[in-house]
Amino acid sequence: MTIDIIFRLAGIGIIVAVITQLLKQTGRDEIALLVTIAGLVIALMTAINVISTLFDSVKRIFTFY
């Protein structure tokens, strides 16, 4: 729940960037777009998990009154 999530996301971003450059060089632009979208979906899944823990902890702490 700390830095590893951030570095995993950075890793996903860099890998997607490299793969899209590679695919663009070999002329397959549509697949590069698909790879970008897939990477973005994975990153947003982890982001959603982190934000749901944030909202759960806010709900737990602020509604005991």
Binding site: G13, G39, L40, L54
Partner: peptide
């Protein structure tokens, strides 16, 4: 990739 920069800032803010 600009969209990943947004996701990273979102996640770090939430953490």
């Amino acid at each position: 990739k600009r969209e990943f920069a947004l996701v990273i800032s979102l996640v770090s803010g939430a953490i």
